[in-house]
């Protein structure tokens, strides 16, 4: 499988708001923890190492 970077979320604005809301009232440290858990949960759901690698690379390339 290939990493899908085309639009794939039906309601992108809803998703984005929920992601930001998730972190409301959290300290930086708590946010970091939530993000780490989130990445792990999503990564396991994807499972495919090729996709995961492509996503990690795409994320790193932007910095």
């Amino acid at each position: 499988m290939k990493l899908n970077t085309e639009p794939n979320i039906a309601q992108p604005d809803d998703f984005y708001q929920e992601l930001i809301d998730l972190h409301r009232d959290l300290s930086e440290e708590q946010s970091r923890q939530v993000n780490a858990r989130l990445i792990l949960l999503l990564a396991n759901h994807i499972g495919d190492m090729e996709v995961l690698r492509a996503a990690m690379q795409a994320a790193a390339e932007e910095s």
């Binding site: 923890q33 780490a36 858990r37 792990l40 949960l41 396991n44």
Partner: peptide, 24 residues
């Protein structure tokens, strides 16, 4: 590092209720 610590703790947070994390 701080980020390595964060992922380590996240794995432990998840391990109790989510079997996948136990493998990590």
């Amino acid at each position: 590092s701080a980020v390595s610590q964060a992922f380590r703790d996240a794995v432990l947070d998840l391990a109790e209720n989510h079997p996948f994390a136990r493998r990590l």
